[in-house]
């Protein structure tokens, strides 16, 4: 086949093995350095998790307020999440221009998708029914798929499903006793889990470089 050659060159096995190890190690180090430079996994999780946690706290402190309870609360939380997606997009764009690495395209698309979900009638209805974690999951999943980031993609699905199930009260309804704070508390836990995942990835990205 043109442009190819046998993988066993005219060198002893020891030298070929050493060369192969060196090349794979070089690839691993380079990819780790780029991951640290981009913070492509840790930064989105920290920003999105932090924003989501921040908007869930009022729902626990004042669970029966008009602005935190019910569908108005869910709509405001979804708007905050879309804003977080847009902020991540802008941060990644800035890094792409300043440092010369990355694109930010994934979160740009995610922010647009989140916005579309909130403004089109069917999408708004769906997001009001499913709650803010629909916007959270959709945005994170779109960005994860666009950036080929398997962790982000799967994390989006897992947290999204848990968040939507919780928003439908399928978890809190099974807990004993009156608990108006339970649903928001579970949502807050999911958000803090996202922040924790972001911190873990930050450390991992530092180590890999």
């Amino acid at each position: 086949m043109p442009g190819t050659r046998n993988a066993l060159p005219d060198q002893p096995d020891d030298a070929a093995l050493a060369a192969a190890h060196e090349l794979t190690a070089q690839v691993s180090v380079l990819r780790g350095t780029v991951r640290r430079d981009r913070r492509a996994t840790s930064l989105p999780l920290l920003v999105l998790g932090g924003t989501t946690a921040a908007v869930m706290v009022p729902a626990i402190v004042q669970p029966t307020s008009m602005w935190t309870d019910g569908r108005i609360g869910a709509a405001l939380q979804s708007v905050a999440i879309v804003a977080a997606l847009a902020a991540i997009w802008q941060a990644e764009r800035h890094r792409a221009v300043a440092a010369g690495v990355g694109t930010g395209r994934g979160f740009g698309l995610a922010a647009v998708a989140g916005l579309v979900l909130l403004v089109i009638p069917g999408g708004l209805l769906l997001s009001l029914i499913a709650g803010p974690f629909l916007t959270f999951a959709l945005g994170l999943l779109i960005a994860g798929l666009k950036q080929r980031n398997a962790f982000i993609s799967w994390f989006a699905v897992a947290v999204g499903v848990a968040g939507i199930v919780n928003d439908r009260d399928w978890i809190s309804n099974r807990l004993p006793g009156p608990h108006p704070w339970a649903g928001p508390a579970i949502s807050l836990t999911l958000a803090l889990l996202t922040v924790a995942a972001g911190l873990l990835w930050w450390r991992r990205e530092n180590r890999a470089a």
Binding site: M1, G3, T4, R5, N6, A7, L8, L23, Q26, V27, L30, R31, V34, R35, D37, R38, A96, G100, V101, G102, T103, R105, Q147
Partner: peptide
Amino acid sequence: MTFDEVVHQRARLAIMSVLAEAGQADF
């Protein structure tokens, strides 16, 4: 087992590895 001569070169393999992780990188 055969290797692509374009890719199987240290510098070019390094470039491609960086781009795979970066999505896009400038000069």
